[in-house]
């Protein structure tokens, strides 16, 4: 567990947005943490390992929404740091577009945003289209953007079905020749599912994206 995690959790548990944002920005400024570590070890766990008392389910939902909103703000604020970090790491622009989105009915977009940032950090031109994107929209976007990768984040395992529909539409109705990359919680317990929905690559951690960048 990251040493900063507990302190961050303390603030976010109180829905204290100001403290959360100040805390994260100060740590980034001080270089006590980099963006991928922040995403992986602080933001992600605070989203996923969210304890919820079943009796207070309604309470949970609003808390989750507040939490998501705080984290979203932090992610937005991270963008300049991503660019800064890329410069500092001396990563070249690969001149390759990556499409990042979520299939229809998938409303969890934070993971996808993080992935988009990691692609950016690795020299890609990441285009994030957001949550709940209908397959026809994805198809149109692919035809326009001509990306080298299509990244699809699937959190809910039911939306694997929608992801599959989108993937087969892309394969049948675009001239896309690159790789389809998927990731997200839906693959956590059963990674094999990525093959079943027709994807080419499953990303399980940020290192997989670095590897991808290195392979070219």
């Amino acid at each position: 567990m990251h040493p900063l995690y507990n302190e961050f959790l303390e603030y976010i548990d109180k829905e204290d947005k100001e403290k959360c944002v100040e805390f994260v920005l100060s740590k980034l400024d001080n270089k006590e943490i980099d963006v991928p570590t922040l995403y992986k070890e602080i933001l992600e766990p605070s989203l996923n390992k969210f304890y919820c008392d079943a009796e207070e389910e309604n309470l949970c939902i609003w808390k989750e929404h507040v939490r998501s909103s705080i984290i979203r703000t932090i992610i937005e604020l991270c963008y300049p740091y991503i660019l800064k970090e890329r410069r500092e790491r001396g990563i070249k622009n690969l001149n390759k577009k990556v499409f990042i989105g979520c299939p229809a009915e998938e409303y969890h977009e934070i993971g996808a945003r993080m992935i988009a940032d990691i692609f950016t950090l690795n020299g890609y031109e990441a285009i994030f289209v957001g949550a709940n994107t209908p397959k026809e929209e994805i198809r149109d976007a692919i035809n326009t953007l001509q990306p080298i990768y299509i990244g699809m984040c699937v959190t809910n395992y039911f939306t694997l079905i929608e992801a599959e529909k989108a993937i087969s539409l892309i394969k049948e109705h675009t001239e896309f020749t690159g790789k389809i990359i998927v990731g997200g919680q839906a693959f956590l317990s059963n990674p094999d599912n990525y093959k079943k929905i027709g994807a080419d690559i499953l990303i399980q951690n940020y290192g997989d994206i670095e590897k991808l960048a290195k392979e070219g």
Binding site: Y157, L160, I161, E164, S189, N190, D192, N193, K196, I197
Partner: peptide
């Protein structure tokens, strides 16, 4: 997932 009388997808959580 059944589609057109066939098993189209068989996903485990």
């Amino acid at each position: 997932e059944i589609r057109d009388g066939k098993i189209h997808l068989d996903l485990y959580k």
